[in-house]
Design a protein around this nucleic acid. Structure first.
Length: 784
DNA sequence: GAGTTTGAAACT
DNA sequence: CAGTTTCAAACTC
């Protein structure tokens, strides 16, 4: 998922997916979020965590339930996104647009209610209208994730209106899909079967809150009618907790730093409001660029069932609010209009997968129509409700209170809302999930259950190599801490991916490193497939800080092979295991730290977590104020090393011992002369290494350049370069000359210094002869 | 490369 | 929680 700079891996999920900032704010700020381009999350409202189980699901039909005062004040209700404004409907509309598109981390939402994040919406009243601002899209109930966008039905709704607007099916339930970023595209959920009356937007919201489907399209405003099949109508009969959320978030290029903004704007009377709001989507410290070409409308059909099996990445170190996002490589935004079926099974709730679709905006490379839900610009997020039917399997993690689902790889073509339809996005399932940001890339493979064990990590053969695999899915698990919501899962090894396996536990816990290996070996990167610029074409999953190293450092660090013999590499003695990695190219014996022993491995992980819930968390905390605040979580316990050898974990992490350490005779403190001496030596050594490396690089470059420049001359016969004259014969002749000179010096009993000088002088003469001969004959002769 | 040292992890 | 054992990495020769 490098992923991501890997620092971004940390940053993105933390900032983007953080739902703690999502609050219900009944006291809106004077400044309109749309106008300011920033949401105003408040802290005064309690934030339901994912662990909170809500007995009654809350429908985020905010606009419908907006206070009269607000409605009266509101001239228009609009959904404010980072780049788009969705409000053209005459009636009440709820538009939810996540502004997280650009950096959208892959998010996985466990099926259980405890893992769901209940977010509150922020209602703000602005002079221009009533705006609903949500820090997050989802309103999660006990088992369900509800995400907004109820659209009141209104006759004459035009799906082809201004970019970013949502359209409702006349006479049916309305689903508003707000697009982020690009203009001209939006997704509209169309409910063929509706029990609501047109024009009764507000009342409908109350009467049928469960009817709300949220399709959030981030990144582009291309209008996309979405056909919600019978499944949607079924939802109306279901309880509110059965709500499904489809979130498509656009990832846009990040241009500046800033907090992530979720802005929900309610459009009440937005007549004439067809312009896009200029709202900066700030994600992960960056401003998302929302300018994107207008693309033709697209239709997305939501089918009932999702028949895709894949692994669900579970991030042990990420909170559920920062859930794994399945990034789907998507097509170019300018692809022709096409219908895409999104499987939805409204009868099965509580399982959602955030699928991020990363699309490279490469107008120069028109992409052929694919089955991917290509709704947006460079990046999208899509939440696919998963069915617990046969196509979606629930994964129970031992020791975990959270449920996971496995996606079934889509194998069939597009469906049009038929029951049991499959996820028709083959490309989506076949391509790696990539979280693209300016600095971070996080690629996550979705590995279908069928092929899970068939995938063998391969060493990277070519950095730029692009391989195509059409039947595999990737799910990523954030590798950064998610401490606040999933206490159990957060302790899993970094980057762990739960994948279906043959073991009796029904899943495999895949280490992040393995995911990275998969990414490097067998998957097409988004950038490679869509023309998204990428330096190497390799997606590197971000990893947790290891031993105080930054994620980038850890990621770039060549993994050290272990030498375990007795631990089966299933104990924390094994660094591979401790780092959440599979053993690969190790020297271990009787290794169980691989996919073939997924059951044992999972048990070992559980055992470790039982002993220490923090076992897989980084020991070196990241200080708030910088590196100086980094400290070992437990502290070392050194007694003989003086904490100045790599035995000491603090020293190894290049941090000083702190009060948490229980070391004896510690010399690893700020003023320690021994430490300073070692540091100086280390610095000097590092400088030397760098110099040597630079020299080698330069030399290699020069040699390469020399060959490049001389090859044409040699091959063309235009002339031979001097070095080509230094043949074996020439060298032997030169040596004979030098030896003879040495013998002569010895005969005349010259001192060694003089002898050396004579030899060197002779060598110089030899060189001169070689050079002079080079331009005369093809076979220079050396005569002493 | 073999042997020793070391301290974290695991165990009691 | 403390003491002991196990283990593999770090280190030395």
């Amino acid at each position: 998922m490098d992923v991501v700079s890997p620092e971004l891996n940390i940053l993105l999920p933390d900032e983007i997916m953080d739902t703690e900032a999502i609050v219900m704010d009944d006291d809106p700020p004077a400044e309109s979020p749309a106008a300011s381009g920033q949401s105003q999350p408040s802290d005064d409202a309690p934030i339901p965590m994912e662990t909170d189980v809500l007995a009654v699901p809350e429908i985020v039909s905010l606009c419908s339930d907006a206070p009269p005062t607000q409605r009266t004040q509101a001239q228009t209700t609009s959904i404010t996104t980072d780049s788009t404004l969705c409000s053209t409907t005459s009636d009440t509309q709820l538009l939810l647009t996540p502004s997280i598109a650009s950096s959208s981390p892959l998010t996985l939402r466990p099926a259980t209610a405890s893992t769901l994040t209940s977010t509150t919406l922020k209602t703000t009243t602005s002079p221009g209208g009533v705006s609903l601002t949500s820090g997050g899209l989802q309103k999660l109930s006990s088992n369900h994730q509800i995400i907004l966008n109820k659209v009141a039905s209104f006759p004459g709704a035009d799906t082809t209106r201004s970019p970013g607007t949502t359209t409702i099916t006349p006479g049916g339930q309305k689903f508003m899909v707000t697009a982020i970023g690009k203009s001209g595209q939006s997704i509209v959920l169309q409910l063929p079967h509706t029990g609501s009356k047109p024009g009764s937007g507000q009342g409908e919201a109350k009467a049928h809150p469960q009817h709300f489907k949220v399709l959030t399209i981030g990144g582009r405003t291309d209008l996309k009618p979405v056909m919600v099949g019978q499944a949607v109508s079924q939802v109306s009969t279901l309880q509110a907790q059965q709500l499904k959320t489809v979130q498509i978030a656009k990832k846009t290029q990040v241009s500046s730093a800033g907090p992530i903004k979720f802005i929900i704007t309610k459009a009440v009377n937005n007549k004439g409001l067809t312009t896009q709001t200029s709202v900066s989507n700030v994600i992960t410290g960056r401003v998302l660029s929302t300018s994107s070409p207008v693309t033709p409308p697209r239709t997305i059909t939501l089918s009932e069932t999702l028949s895709s099996s894949s692994k669900i990445a579970i991030s042990p170190l990420k909170s559920p609010s920062k859930l794994t996002v399945v990034s789907v490589a998507s097509q170019v935004p300018n692809s022709p209009q096409k219908s895409v079926s999104l499987p939805l099974n409204m009868t099965h709730l509580g399982q959602q997968i955030l699928v991020q679709q990363s699309t490279a905006t490469s107008p120069a490379k028109p992409m052929k129509p694919v089955q991917t839900v290509t709704v947006g610009g460079p990046q999208f997020k899509t939440i696919f409700p998963l069915s617990t039917s046969s196509n979606v399997q629930q994964i129970q993690v031992p020791g975990s209170r959270f449920h996971y689902v496995r996606l079934v790889t889509a194998t069939t073509g597009s469906s049009t809302g038929q029951a049991g339809s499959h996820c028709t996005n083959s490309s989506m399932t076949a391509k790696p999930m990539v979280v693209n940001t300016a600095q971070v890339r996080m690629s996550v493979p979705i590995i279908p259950a069928q092929t899970m064990k068939q995938v063998v990590p391969k060493p990277l053969t070519s950095s730029g190599q692009v391989l195509t695999t059409q039947t595999q899915q990737r799910l990523i698990m954030p590798a950064t801490p998610l401490p606040q919501i999933q206490p159990n899962l957060t302790n899993l090894p970094p980057g762990t991916v739960l994948a279906p396996g043959s073991g009796n536990m029904g899943y495999a816990v895949l280490p992040a490193h393995y995911v990275t290996q998969l990414q490097q070996s067998a998957y097409v990167t988004l950038a490679s497939s869509s023309g998204f610029p990428t330096p190497t074409g390799i997606q590197t999953q971000a990893r947790l800080p290891l031993n105080g190293l930054s994620t980038s450092d850890a990621a770039s660090r060549p993994r050290k092979p272990c030498n375990c013999n007795k631990s089966q590499c299933l104990k924390l003695y094994c660094d591979c295991f401790a780092n959440g990695e599979f053993c690969q190219s190790c020297n271990c014996t009787n290794c169980f730290n691989n996919l073939e022993h997924e059951t044992e491995r999972a048990k070992a992980i559980k055992a470790c977590l039982d002993r220490n819930p923090e076992a897989f968390k980084p020991k070196i905390g990241k200080g708030k104020e910088g590196e100086s605040d980094r400290r070992h979580s437990k502290g070392c316990n050194c007694k003989r090393s003086g904490c100045l050898k790599n035995y000491c974990e603090c020293y190894e992490a290049k941090i000083m011992c702190s009060s948490t350490c229980k070391c004896v005779g510690c010399k690893n403190f700020e003023e320690s002369p021994e430490r300073k001496t070692l540091m100086h030596l280390a610095d000097a050594a590092e400088v030397r290494v760098q110099q040597q490396t630079a020299a080698k690089t330069k030399l290699s470059s020069q040699i390469s350049d020399l060959f490049t420049r001389t090859t044409p001359a040699i091959t063309s016969g235009g002339g031979r370069m001097p070095f080509t004259f230094v043949t074996k014969e020439v060298a032997e002749a030169t040596c004979e000359c030098l030896l003879e000179q040495a013998e002569q010096a010895e005969l005349i009993q010259q001192p060694q210094a003089t002898a050396e000088r004579m030899i060197l002088e002779e060598f110089g003469r030899c060189l001169m002869r070689i050079i002079s001969s080079a331009g005369k004959t093809d076979c220079p002769s050396i005569n002493c």
